[in-house]
Design a protein around this nucleic acid. Structure first.
Lengths: 237, 237
DNA sequence: CCGGGCGGTGAATCGGCCC
DNA sequence: CGGGCCGATTCACCGCCCG
């Protein structure tokens, strides 16, 4: 019996069909950011917005990054509400966001029923400088829970911030890929042996981290390209 | 001629009387946080919420920490709007907040007319662990500007996050005192020789940082106790 | 016809990390 | 140990359009 499942399809279509309860939801939605104006946000592809230099030619694009802020909040609220439904009482949510969408993401999280419990900054040492200003070198994971957080046995203490650079070169398979050790810290919010759900699996780093840390994994990925990659990586663990 | 001024009184009373333009506003308002419910927030004093152990007996209390979230947003919006009024075009705002008030603080900042430009996390290595959860070891400075940020000569590049523990022992004179080197990084957003305004001066660390970094300083402090301390520290630079 | 604002296009900036 | 590469964008410049 395998300890992971990967669904291929849109999150808002797949989530309502799921019935098995999970212990934690960890998700990294498209940020719908990267542009000062609506027209900029909507016109560019994710690859055009976020990837510079040679990497443009080798990494696949992804959809769903063209909403304005109201649309983003509403859509993410629906995804998080469906995730809430199948989460056990005491289970946790971790959702990534950049600085510009952080407040809107807290709205979506709370609208979906989660209790907001904190912010975990993720520092990326490799980042562009900003002329006459402060470097933007962090993204943020927001922590929520369904009721009071689960008690773990033994009790765990998790870090208040994370640090790590994106995978580079041939290790990099997705535009917005997270470092494995960052995700390994986060999946520990689910109890050992528990199940982690990731509605935006991408290349599957969350799933790989869940398996290496002794948690089960359920993933959803809309792109056939990335679903294949994730399946390969999960099978290899 | 001295390069600093300290006004004693309430910010919302003093700010409208100021006319000299400033280059940057750096402020650390009472967070009105520290409690999951309204009644918890309003019942406790700032000292009861933020100070533990022996320090309770030796540090003075401060007022203005008992607003609910709507009241906080509105009140902070007024302060930030008055600060905006006397800030030169291209000048910057940096305002501190904890995780729970971060979204409300971005609302107040933008309502006051500032363009929101980013989040600078401040990591406090000395912080309490959280049982079965993620440590809360960061506070956040929000960066805004009046129009496009000032150009500096020479061009400067500021860090994307800050690190430093609160002063301890006899160096600690205020409940929510910031480390000097953290404030020295932040005041550099004002051009050399420019003026920094701090509407909540407290023990005056922002002012000391401004002076040591070659900036002028204008402060406002409501408590006579802390205004005296700040005056002493500023005079000593 | 001049000035300013908006929008689109393209080049880039420093520091960490890898080879 | 040094050189080169790259980054979940932003800045700067240049048209165009409108008042």
């Amino acid at each position: 019996m395998t300890n992971w499942t990967l669904h291929h399809g849109d999150s808002l279509t797949i989530l309502p069909t799921l019935t098995t309860p999970v212990d934690a939801v960890i998700c990294d939605p498209p940020y719908n950011s990267g542009g000062r104006t609506n027209s900029e946000r909507k016109a560019q592809s994710a690859r055009g917005k976020y990837v510079s230099g040679d990497a443009q030619h080798s990494l696949a694009d992804f959809d769903g990054d063209n909403r304005d802020q109201r649309g983003y909040t509403y859509w993410l609220g629906l995804v998080l509400a469906e995730s809430y439904r199948i989460t056990r009482p005491g289970g946790s949510l971790l959702t990534f966001t950049d600085w510009a969408q952080l407040p809107a993401t807290t709205d979506a999280l709370q609208a979906a029923g989660w209790t907001w419990r904190g912010i975990i900054p993720w520092r990326k040492p490799i980042s562009r400088p900003v002329k006459n200003g402060f470097r933007r070198e962090c993204e943020y994971a927001l922590w929520g829970s369904r009721g009071d957080p689960l008690r773990h046995a033994p009790t765990i203490y998790l870090p208040g911030m994370l640090e790590g650079s994106q995978p580079r070169g041939s290790n990099r398979v997705h535009i917005t890929q997270k470092p494995l050790d960052v995700m390994q810290q986060l999946v520990r919010i689910a109890p050992a042996g528990g199940t982690v759900l990731d509605p935006f699996t991408g290349s599957g780093t969350t799933g790989v981290a869940a398996l290496t840390e002794g948690r089960k994994f359920v993933g959803i990925e809309a792109s056939a390209h990335y679903a294949d990659i994730a399946r390969e990586r999960l099978a290899a663990v």
